[in-house]
Measured scan of single mutants.
Amino acid sequence: MDCGICYAYQLDGTIPDQVCDNSQCGQPFHQICLYEWLRGLLTSRQSFNIIFGECPYCSKPITLKMS
């Protein structure tokens, strides 16, 4: 499936590997796309290497662990 942010399947050789945990959403994202999206939200917060925010599609909580 394509990334829900950039709408591409491959981005710099990677495929969407982050998925919204909401079973009714399940939208996939590239890690870098989701990172940039969450960084741009005023409501997002970060604790060590984990960013907490809202899914761009369903607005439910989503987390991103940076590797």
Rank of each mutant, 00 (worst) to 15 (best):
D2Q: 08
D2T: 07
C3R: 02
C3T: 00
C3V: 02
C3S: 01
C3A: 02
C3N: 05
I5V: 08
I5R: 02
Y7P: 00
Y7A: 12
Y7I: 02
A8D: 13
A8I: 04
A8C: 15
Q10E: 11
Q10R: 13
Q10V: 12
Q10A: 11
L11H: 15
L11M: 14
D12W: 03
D12E: 06
D12A: 08
G13R: 04
G13H: 05
T14H: 11
T14V: 09
T14S: 09
I15M: 07
I15S: 06
I15R: 05
I15D: 05
I15L: 12
I15G: 06
P16W: 02
D17E: 07
Q18C: 05
Q18N: 10
Q18G: 02
Q18I: 14
Q18K: 09
V19F: 12
V19G: 04
V19M: 09
C20Y: 03
C20D: 01
C20P: 01
C20T: 00
D21Q: 07
D21L: 11
D21M: 15
D21W: 13
D21A: 06
N22F: 05
N22V: 01
N22A: 03
N22R: 05
N22W: 04
S23Y: 04
S23G: 07
Q24L: 07
Q24R: 08
Q24E: 07
Q24S: 09
Q24A: 06
C25K: 04
C25A: 00
G26K: 08
G26T: 09
G26I: 08
Q27T: 11
Q27A: 07
Q27H: 03
P28E: 07
P28I: 05
P28M: 12
P28S: 08
P28G: 09
F29W: 01
F29Y: 07
H30N: 02
H30E: 00
Q31E: 09
Q31G: 05
Q31M: 05
Q31N: 03
Q31A: 10
Q31L: 11
I32H: 10
I32W: 11
I32Q: 15
I32K: 14
L34T: 00
Y35W: 05
Y35G: 11
Y35E: 06
Y35L: 08
E36L: 06
W37E: 02
W37V: 05
L38T: 15
L38R: 04
R39I: 03
R39W: 03
R39C: 05
G40Q: 15
G40S: 12
G40L: 05
L42P: 14
L42C: 13
T43E: 10
T43P: 05
T43A: 09
S44D: 06
S44T: 15
R45H: 06
R45I: 04
R45E: 07
R45G: 11
R45T: 15
Q46I: 12
Q46R: 11
Q46W: 08
S47T: 11
S47P: 04
S47I: 07
F48R: 11
F48A: 10
F48D: 15
F48V: 14
I50F: 05
I50E: 15
I50G: 12
G53M: 01
C55T: 01
P56N: 02
Y57P: 06
Y57T: 15
Y57F: 14
Y57M: 14
Y57V: 13
C58T: 03
C58R: 00
S59D: 04
S59H: 14
K60R: 10
P61F: 05
P61R: 15
P61H: 01
I62C: 09
I62F: 07
L64A: 14
L64S: 15
L64T: 14
L64D: 11
K65M: 03
K65I: 08
K65S: 14
K65W: 06
K65R: 13
S67L: 06
